[in-house]
Design a protein around this nucleic acid. Structure first.
Lengths: 221, 221
DNA sequence: ATGTCAAATAATATCGATATTTTTGGAGAG
DNA sequence: CTCTCCAAAAATATCGATATTATTTGACAT
């Protein structure tokens, strides 16, 4: 009658599962940019039907990680220097807007959230934990989420993910230079807690520009 | 060698057809905000199968016109004053960025395109043609497309569509005050042709803010 | 009356199979 | 030897049906 004693705590949807798995594969470069994504091949890889795979791919086009060519299937989104630089530029513009709005709405709960996220990120970083990537994103998104601007947050989250992809492609992993990144994060955090919007955005943008230049130099030119 | 006297502009895909039709229905308010979008109901309305409907709805979530609730189907995205104001703010920020980049790349071909789009929009407006809406969007997008920043263009296009929706919801049609809108468009065009980025963005933002305030006043508060 | 629970109903998510379309490979003509 | 065209193969898009999950209904006890 039924299949398994399934643990109800988790998300039980073939489509959503396929979405998360495919997203991971594309972000890490295991499905390389420009590659044709054949339904049958993915169906076997993810051990599910064709319908969930198709829907997951459709959802990934929203995130600009997959391109859909009508009547000709799907492919992993291509990469390039121009694309990378557009992402960098948009992140600077949009995250500055979001961060300033967040600081404008600053309150005690937000500060608590920031401190906590920062702490978790530090812990994960020191232990080289595999969830450092998640903690890093959580900290950055926490900086922005007090703006209460859901569409802007969505854009920033999308762009963040697209940027992760370039990090993996450039370095083969999340092991980009961790030297003074801790200090940069600390500067952003301190400025945000001081509610100094100018300093916070300056530090944030410097943070992006410096890692951006490092990645950009590694690309083709 | 070739196929048929069939125009290549014709899109032969049930999914894409359903996408265009559903998009239209949501933008014009025929499928009202918050409404549950039942597959079976849409399947009959669009005279197609369930798979194309599902995929079209998935694609519309990218455009933020449809919300997907896992295991509980789809619904037309809700509306609200906060949402409208976020759209307005994002449009001002993003279109300013794009317009400045467009002007930075200004050349003769772009100027020609602008003049042409503006002319077509005027013609359609005077004749109250039903394609004024399309011509209006084409003019506004032409202002931005010389930036050669595809993601930014995509965001602007999405936000433009979301704004159309509020116009229809507020007025029951595209008949918002046409009084001095022609003059506003002329000002934007002239400034762009003069490659005066400051003036062009100022006029563009004024244009959005004034129609924005009109719509905002009509909403709930 | 009212709140709870289980059966009935309705809708979604998924599967397997088929129809269409694109791509591939090779034979024949120039 | 190259190009064109047609048949074979592969892949996509779509359909119809089923299994799963959410929602409603109504009986029953409090």
């Amino acid at each position: 009658m039924n299949v398994m004693p399934d643990r109800d705590s988790k998300e039980t949807s073939a489509t959503h599962g396929a979405y998360l798995k495919l997203r991971e594969l594309i972000l890490t470069g295991e499905l390389p940019p420009g590659d044709k994504l054949k339904i049958e091949q993915l169906r076997k890889l993810l051990e599910t039907g064709a319908s969930p795979v198709r829907e997951a791919l459709s959802l990934l086009t929203s995130d600009m990680l997959v391109e859909r060519i009508d009547q000709r299937g799907f492919r992993a989104a291509p990469v390039g220097k121009a694309n990378f630089e557009e992402i960098l530029m948009l992140r600077c513009t949009l995250e500055e807007t979001a961060l300033r709005a967040s600081i404008r709405n600053a309150d005690a709960e937000w500060e608590d959230r920031l401190v906590l996220r920062h702490h978790h990120m530090q812990r994960a970083g020191l232990r080289k934990a595999p969830d450092f990537e998640d903690a890093h994103k959580a900290f950055h998104m926490a900086l922005l989420d007090n703006a209460h601007l859901p569409m802007l947050e969505r854009y920033c989250s999308q762009l963040y993910d697209l940027n992760i992809r370039y990090r993996y492609l450039a370095a083969g992993g999340p092991s980009y230079k961790k030297r003074d990144i801790a200090a940069e994060h600390q500067n952003i955090l301190d400025a945000a807690l001081n509610r100094d919007a100018d300093a916070a955005t300056a530090h944030l943008i410097d943070h992006y520009r410096s890692t951006g230049e490092y990645l950009s130099s590694q690309m083709d030119g």
